[in-house]
Design a protein around this nucleic acid. Structure first.
Length: 251
DNA sequence: ATGGCTACGATCCGTAGA
């Protein structure tokens, strides 16, 4: 089973790229973030024609998450109560799939930063509950945290900044402490592997990025995980998302 | 010096992202 996550930064703009990528990547399940679409605008028919069912929770302009899958999506849940549409979960082929779009946090010390830390505490509590019911659980998404310095192109320049600050990293580790593993770090990886690059200053060409999109696997899934990779190809397209997909294979 | 892109929904600039 091939699981994937991709912050598409507007599904309306990126739908053609998503359909191409689904056909090429072999993804069985794809978690999408920043769809920026109300549910009535979700391109259900286009995805269905491509062979994917979908569960989605969206809003206009901001946020919005979706899970698309070749198999049936069962027991769909929109996660913990919230105005911002950032969490959706479904069971696919016996795997509990949780799609998250964690808050950005804007700047350390801002109201949005405090919201981000509180949000992670809520997510942790909610995931703990989900894990008690689902041994085979995967959390995929844009966590907006680079867990370690090796996930940052220039750790010195980023030191203490939002996405790498110690409280954010502690919040991320708090999720791992529930018994989840960062699939990407289960395997040897190339140095300077990132999943996001700023649109400005030719950041992608300079590989000035962050690894802020992750796939977390519960122990039974981590033991069966055979690969985890970042697919940089979509970031090279015309009009790309600033994020690129991350994939994990689970036997 | 603190911007630089991109998407969006509002107007022809502001907000947000990371």
């Amino acid at each position: 089973m091939r699981l994937a996550t991709w912050n598409v930064n507007s599904l309306k703009v990126r739908l053609p790229q998503l359909l191409d990528w689904l056909a090429q990547s072999g993804a069985d399940v794809a978690c999408l973030q920043e769809t920026k679409l109300e549910d009535g605008q979700f391109p259900r028919a286009e995805l269905q024609a491509a062979g994917y069912a979908a569960a989605f929770s969206g809003q206009k302009t901001y946020n919005g998450v979706a899970i698309v899958a070749r198999s049936t999506l069962e027991d769909v849940s929109i996660g913990f109560p919230q105005e911002q549409k950032r969490v959706i979960a479904a069971t696919v082929d016996g795997v509990r799939v949780v799609c998250v779009y964690c808050p950005n946090g804007q700047a350390v010390g801002s109201d949005k930063y405090e919201y981000k830390l509180q949000w992670f505490a809520q997510l942790r509590a909610w995931l703990k509950e989900e894990l008690s019911r689902h041994a085979r659980l995967a959390v995929l998404g844009d966590f907006n945290v680079a867990p370690e310095d090796r996930d940052v192109h220039d750790p010195k320049a980023w030191e203490g900044q939002v996405h790498v600050s110690e409280p954010e990293r502690a919040a991320f580790r708090g999720l791992l402490e529930l018994g989840l593993g960062d699939a990407f770090r289960l395997f040897p990886q190339p140095e300077k592997s990132f999943s996001w690059w700023d649109y400005r200053r030719m950041a992608f060409r300079r590989n000035a990025g962050l690894r802020i999109d992750q796939i977390l696997l519960s122990e039974p899934l981590a033991q069966r995980c055979t690969a985890c990779t970042i697919d940089k190809a979509p970031r090279r397209h015309e009009r790309p998302s600033d994020h690129t997909p991350v994939l994990a294979d689970v036997a």
